[in-house]
Amino acid sequence: MRRHWLRIFAGLLLWLPLTLHAASEAPYSRIVTLDWGLAETLIGIGVTPLAVADLTNYRRWVGEPQMPPQVHNLGLRSEPNLELLTQLKPDLILITPQFEAARPLLERIAPVKSLAIYRPDSDPLQTAEEITRELAELTGHQPQAQQLVDDFERQLARLRGKLAGQSLPPFYLVSFIDERHVRVYGEHNLFSAVLARLGQENAWHAGDNYWGYAQAGVEQLADNPDAALIYFAPLPLNTEQQLAGSKLWQQMPFVQQGRVYAFPPTWQLGGLLAAQRFMGLFEEALSDE
């Protein structure tokens, strides 16, 4: 009896997806995204996404740009809520390769497009620009995207010119995991690419992973005695006090020479907007001296 029922249901379900959405055409307006970097880039070109995954943590870890209150929270990034997604009726779902596993499910709701800022052996900044343009194509916001890219390039050129005369130290870019461990961003990282375009050097050369970071003990940051340190908030609890009480930390060359810069939350896996924000913070930090 029960299995008979199931067979009917199964038949119904297999047939359903075929009749759903006849392929809709660009420009899309009801866009959802699982990736925070894509979400912030959308905001940057003047598109408010319909829903973004894990907004609670977005507000804590990405901060800027702020998501308008009407944006829906899709739940955990690894498992966006499919029921909710279905009821929101999006016309495009944007993912990154790390969410590929969910693609077959998502495709039953709306067309899925995967955009990767991080690809092996490519300059993340360049990819971020390409992705901004791609998003513009998809949403019909090409002028805004052009504006964003132009602004970025102009800002980059200006800052590069400003820094040309100065000889700045190489920079470590880190987030603190606790008072003993850091996540340090290496050459594949977006901000590292910004540094490179500004003619500056990343002090970390010991390798990094696909997403452009490595984990290290704090003491490993002493390897380059000439370097300065940039760290990103939020800091884990009590880390500041614990570092203040640490002899080795006090003796680290960048602490001794007052070359430590604290940056507010900035999404290290972000897009052009994150890069722009980083550049602004960088300029601000240097001009404070």
Partner: peptide, 11 residues
């Protein structure tokens, strides 16, 4: 890291 016990120290 912590549930897997890291011994790294800096003081």
């Amino acid at each position: 890291i912590w549930s897997a016990g890291s011994l790294s120290q800096n003081n």
